[in-house]
């Protein structure tokens, strides 16, 4: 069984190809929402910041950790709202057209 850094490198490679494939055949109209969506996805940095703050001991570490969680939470929450607002319009419009 592979472990540690090697397992991580394999994940890295496969995830890299996945990201490339997911985007590669996307219509231009969805580029902005997708950029916004991927912006939301890297908001997962929040969990890392939580772990970092959770391990922090000195006041300086705590302050930086707090700052990190704050920023991470803003990335996640803001990224979600903005993306959802953009994509909502695509959905609404489709229904409107179907109805009329």
């Amino acid at each position: 069984m592979i472990e540690g850094i090697w397992a991580a490198l394999f994940i890295f490679m496969l995830a890299g190809f996945t990201g490339y494939e997911v985007i590669s055949r996307v219509p231009v109209i969805l580029h902005t929402p997708l950029m916004s969506g991927s912006n939301f996805v890297h908001g997962i940095v929040l969990v890392g910041a939580m772990v970092a703050l959770g391990h922090a001991e000195t006041p300086v570490e705590q302050a930086i950790g707090f700052f990190g969680v704050l920023l991470g939470a803003m990335n996640a929450a803001g990224g979600y709202v903005v993306t959802e607002r953009m994509l909502e319009m695509f959905e609404k419009k489709k229904q409107g057209k179907g109805g009329g």
């Binding site: 995830a15 990201g19 997911v22 997962i44 969990v47 772990v51």
Partner: peptide
Amino acid sequence: LGNAAMIVAGTVVGAAGTLL
């Protein structure tokens, strides 16, 4: 941090973002 969720999500975004 040894956090696989961050590795996967970050790499996917890194690759997709580079292509974009």
